[in-house]
Simulated assay, not measured.
Amino acid sequence: MTASKQSRPRGSGRGRRVTIADIAGRAGVTSAAVSLAVNGRPGVSDATRARIVAIAEEMQWEPSPAARALAGAPVLTIGMVLARPAEVLGTEAFFGAFVAGLQEVLSRRDYSLQMKIVDSTEAEIDTFRRWLAQRRVDGVVVVDLRQDDPRIPALEELGLPALVIGGPGHHGALPSVYVDDAHATRLLVDHLGERGHRSIARVAGNEDFLHILVRDRAFTERCTELGITPVVQDAGFGTRGAGIATAELLAREDAPHAIIFDSDEMALAGIHVVEEAGLRIPEDIAIASYEDSALTRTHRPPITSIGRSAIEYGRVAAARLLEVIEDSRDGRAASAKTPPESRAIEPVLVVRGSTDPDAPEAEGYLRHSALSEEGSEVRVRQESC
């Protein structure tokens, strides 16, 4: 029995995309008429447009990204290039939450996020150039801002819409959003100082990054102002480096009374070393982290940390980048509504049992500012973290 050859109403063959030519054949019009209709351009009657669009939907047609790029239309893709080892990225709860917030907002506008891991800053810049030349992305998110960052002038020259995650400053004419790491550092140092700690160490991440330099400076300055001995121990990002740095600190004759870690993963690695040394937290040594995640809340004792929603940070960044892209498309250098640089989130300190044995269990209590006018600690019970 011979099967009759009929046109497929919901596609044009296994593994083959439905094209404008397929729609034109079904509608009995030219491909040019279909292009005008599906792109909302004048040149066809309302009735013809409605019929063509209905056929396109029935055939489950989707516009080709390559064709959209050639036509100068948005490709609905945001790019992010990362010069960090996959092993490090895979363990960072903060970064994963940031990307989740970013993607949530982009998805609502039907944008996709394209990520690429490279081994150097030069490779990042080469990727930006290639993406622009090939019309692969509508804009990019720039993370891990550095002092005198070569990516900034390169992107300014390319004219590719970009949003820098980091600051204040050091982002040239590009717009940026950032979290105030200096304020976060003062919150941590003030709290530990008020708890009576006169020697505080900071186990620091990659010193190439601007936010690490900001933390280092603020840490040393605030400790000096309060008469506290500061110790900065470089560890790079990653649990192994944090563990080694903690062991080196504990081996000192003047071992610190408290340690601040640059991430929750680093804090957990350090805590393991502390416990192996037979020290009690917080009785013998206090522990705090710049990041607040489920890891800090579920540890016993729960870890004092900086409260700043990474998901919300990603949402703010995505919304701002979409504004930048729209401004660029409309020929505006920058939106009059939003300054080139803005703080995304105001950090707060969530005090928990790793520094204060009297703090409520996992929820802790919040501290919004540094020393109050009376020099006392400002506490607000945290309802949820």
Results as ranks from 00 to 15, higher is better:
residue 286 A to T: 09
residue 303 I to K: 14
residue 284 D to F: 12
residue 261 F to L: 01
residue 283 E to S: 13
residue 319 A to F: 00
residue 256 P to S: 06
residue 235 A to G: 05
residue 223 C to M: 03
residue 282 P to A: 15
residue 272 H to P: 00
residue 264 D to A: 11
residue 245 A to V: 03
residue 309 S to L: 10
residue 244 I to E: 02
residue 230 P to D: 04
residue 306 I to F: 00
residue 299 H to Q: 15
residue 261 F to M: 08
residue 322 L to D: 04
residue 231 V to H: 10
residue 286 A to V: 12
residue 228 I to L: 03
residue 292 D to E: 14
residue 235 A to D: 02
residue 328 S to W: 03
residue 270 G to F: 08
residue 284 D to R: 14
residue 319 A to Y: 02
residue 259 I to W: 03
residue 263 S to Q: 07
residue 260 I to F: 06
residue 290 Y to C: 09
residue 262 D to L: 00
residue 261 F to R: 02
residue 242 A to G: 12
residue 241 G to A: 05
residue 249 L to G: 01
residue 320 R to A: 10
residue 270 G to R: 07
residue 235 A to E: 00
residue 325 I to F: 01
residue 323 E to W: 00
residue 291 E to Y: 12
residue 238 G to M: 06
residue 225 E to T: 05
residue 320 R to L: 08
residue 297 R to G: 11
residue 296 T to L: 06
residue 232 V to P: 06
residue 246 T to H: 05
residue 302 P to G: 12
residue 284 D to Q: 15
residue 279 L to C: 12
residue 321 L to F: 06
residue 296 T to A: 15
residue 294 A to C: 13
residue 228 I to N: 00
residue 318 A to L: 10
residue 311 I to R: 10
residue 278 G to R: 15
residue 280 R to M: 09
residue 243 G to D: 02
residue 301 P to K: 09
residue 288 A to F: 11
residue 273 V to W: 09
residue 267 A to G: 08
